[in-house]
Simulated scan of single mutants.
Amino acid sequence: MAALPAWNLLKGKTAAVTGGTTGIGRAIVLAYISQGCNVAVNHLGLDKDEGLRHSLLEEVKAIEDTGIKAGKILELAGDVTKPETSTSLIQEAVSQWGKLDIFVANAGVFKPAELLNIEPSLLDHSVDVNVKGTFYSCQAAARQMVKQGHGGSIIGVSSVSALLGGGFQTHYTPTKAAILSMMQSMAIALGKDKIRCNALMPGTIGTSLAAHDMKNPTKMAALEERIPLGRIGDPNDMAGPALFLACEEMSRYVNATGLLADGGMYSKLQ
């Protein structure tokens, strides 16, 4: 799908995005850069993901080569379950570009599992990455924004799964509900500092996390039937909503809310 036009909506801004080399995070990174925003990107730094890292840098170079006033990119490896990872990411962004205006807590994990077979290790990992990782990273971003004193936008990537249950998601849906709740509470805590905190809530998106469903024709057909727009989402479908929440001029009074971007799936009861 086509990228968003280069409207220059984030000119001169600095953002940091966790889990930014693949899926929704990658789409957000590229959208922000095309809008003139400098972006610090976190990733795990695994050898198997080197191709994704290199291809992201190549895509950014291609955007720059079009001649638009694109932002710059820096990337830093680290595990978001460790608080120092996000602290380092933000320090690097501020060292490079002088400030932090936008933060997107996107890093997340999901592995479908039957309730009765879920081991403590799977539950712990889901909570550690999705809940603790989001908390630590947003806390680090908030500390920087409060210190700067000119507000900002913090976006936690939640899910329609914050509102709906799933038989193979009993370890996952609570973590996405936690992110929505976290953004609401952070918005209250940080409102006095003019920092807006919102949750982006994707529906079923064609990413590596949803690969198990994409490979099953029966499951795929059932999902598409459930979505009024008739198709599974693309990561680029999340770029516009993430841009909206980041852009002060467009969403300056949008705070403590969840932006549902699911093609209408949540509303289709029958």
Rank of each mutant, 00 (worst) to 15 (best):
G156L: 04
F168I: 11
V146D: 00
V146T: 08
R143S: 12
D124G: 00
D128L: 11
H125C: 05
M145E: 09
V160K: 14
L163N: 13
Y136S: 12
A141T: 01
A140D: 08
D128P: 02
T175V: 01
V157I: 15
A140Q: 06
F135I: 14
G166F: 07
K176E: 08
A178N: 03
S153L: 09
R143V: 05
G165C: 04
S159R: 12
A140N: 09
L164Q: 15
A141M: 04
Q139I: 07
F168C: 01
G149Y: 13
Q144R: 13
S181Q: 11
I154R: 10
L180H: 05
S153C: 11
L122W: 09
D128I: 06
N130K: 12
T173H: 03
G165A: 04
S126P: 03
G156S: 08
V160I: 15
V157F: 12
P174V: 05
V160D: 12
H150K: 14
V127D: 09
A141Y: 07
T134I: 05
S158W: 02
P174Y: 04
L163Q: 15
K147S: 15
V157Q: 11
Q144L: 06
G165Q: 07
S161P: 01
A142L: 09
A177M: 06
A140M: 08
T175L: 03
M145F: 01
S181A: 07
V157W: 12
G167R: 03
I179Q: 04
S161H: 14
K176N: 00
F135W: 15
V157N: 14
F168A: 06
S161W: 14
Q139G: 00
S159C: 12
A178C: 00
A142C: 10
L163M: 15
L164T: 11
